[in-house]
Amino acid sequence: MKLIITQFLRFILFIVAQTLIFNNLEIGFGIQIMVYPLFLMLLPFDTSIVILLLLAFVMGISIDAISNTYGLHTSSLLLVAYLRPIIFGIFSPREGYDSIKESTIFEMGQRWFISVFGLLLVIHHLWFFALEMFKMSEILLILKKTLFSVPVSFLLCILLQIVFVTKPKEK
């Protein structure tokens, strides 16, 4: 029960933060900050993929409705939800995932988090910008936008975890 309430609060907070704060930060160079894939990333390891997909859909639709993008965020977030179990499988530790642990940067280690979340974020941003432009001739612009936006989003995601996620106690 506690888990559902925390996840629900996170769900709302991510939508609010993305639409009301991060959508309005305009740094230039075509940078667009998208931090909401972190919500899907932080769901427990044993979440079933159907729930992942449905959550991604509802979250994407809500963000799209407020930021006038009509399905762009939904589509990219659905892709992240679909690929999450596959990428988790590729990078799984030798003895499998411990279902008590959370997939934060503190509990899983920096190396694991950077490779898994980095890959998901690159896929998400690439899909988003490719759909937004939707022209082969604009491929350089798509790559440039992805290249500039991913590091900024990634750093913000790590910052969000440092500020808001409680660290496990040192043993």
Binding site: L53, A56, G60, Y70, G71, L78, L131
Partner: peptide, 15 residues
């Protein structure tokens, strides 16, 4: 995959 495709198609047609 079909659930994924269904939701994806909805989002894309909408866009």
């Amino acid at each position: 995959f079909m659930l994924f495709a269904l939701l994806q198609i909805y989002a894309l047609t909408n866009y």
